[in-house]
């Protein structure tokens, strides 16, 4: 199986929802449909390049400034993944900038844009870019995200959305970003 297929299967098994997109504009339109409220969009190189903020606004999405008070009221956060890990269906987000953490922890929905080509095979293969992230900056907060927030603490029944996002949407794109270290 190719990496993309493996990734998609594993991500869905972990409870993520895959959204196939042909263009950033289509991604923005899908976010507009699904967000169900105001959105946080932390700064990221790939989103800027694609002018995602404008696209979202065109699609009718209300953007909030990413700060703590607003973040708590947002319906969704939109971030871009550095890369993904196929075998577990995991997204890797360089989250040292606090905005990324707020957007990916507080709102009930989390949208992650991912270039279909940026997928490594497994956790061990992920170490190379992970180490590069550590070399690039002196301090880091790197998040591996696999599916929505979950718990099985009451009678071992799997329940979604206890603290973090209740829904995780992965928007798959081509020509979005080719650098594994770029968000």
């Amino acid at each position: 199986m190719d990496l993309l297929k493996t990734f998609c299967t594993a991500a869905e098994a972990a409870g993520a929802v895959l959204v196939e997109c042909k263009s950033p504009a289509q991604a923005a339109a899908r976010i507009a449909e699904l967000a169900d409220g105001a959105v946080l969009l932390p700064v990221s190189a790939s989103c800027e390049r694609a002018q995602l903020a404008e696209q979202l606004q065109t699609a009718g999405v209300r953007l909030l400034a990413v700060d703590r008070t607003q973040a708590a009221d947002a319906a969704a956060g939109v971030t871009s993944a550095g890369f993904a890990i196929a075998d577990t269906g995991t997204l890797v987000l360089e989250s040292t900038a606090e905005d990324v953490r707020l957007a990916s922890t507080l709102p009930p929905r989390h949208f992650v844009l991912l270039d279909r080509s940026k997928i490594v095979a497994d956790g061990l293969a992920a170490v190379t870019p992970l180490r590069q992230l550590h070399q690039q900056q002196p301090r880091n907060y790197v998040a591996y995200i696999t599916g929505p927030s979950r718990t099985a603490d009451i009678e071992r029944v799997l329940t979604i959305g206890v603290h973090g996002p209740k829904q995780l949407y992965i928007l798959l794109l081509d020509n979005w970003s080719s650098d594994l270290l770029e968000m």
């Binding site: 075998d87 269906g89 550590h134 927030s149 973090g164």
Partner: peptide, 15 residues
């Protein structure tokens, strides 16, 4: 297969 979150924290990050 993997938990929802694996978080790698090095040092005092922005807050």
């Amino acid at each position: 297969a993997l938990t929802s979150y694996v978080t790698w924290i090095r040092g005092a990050v922005p807050c």
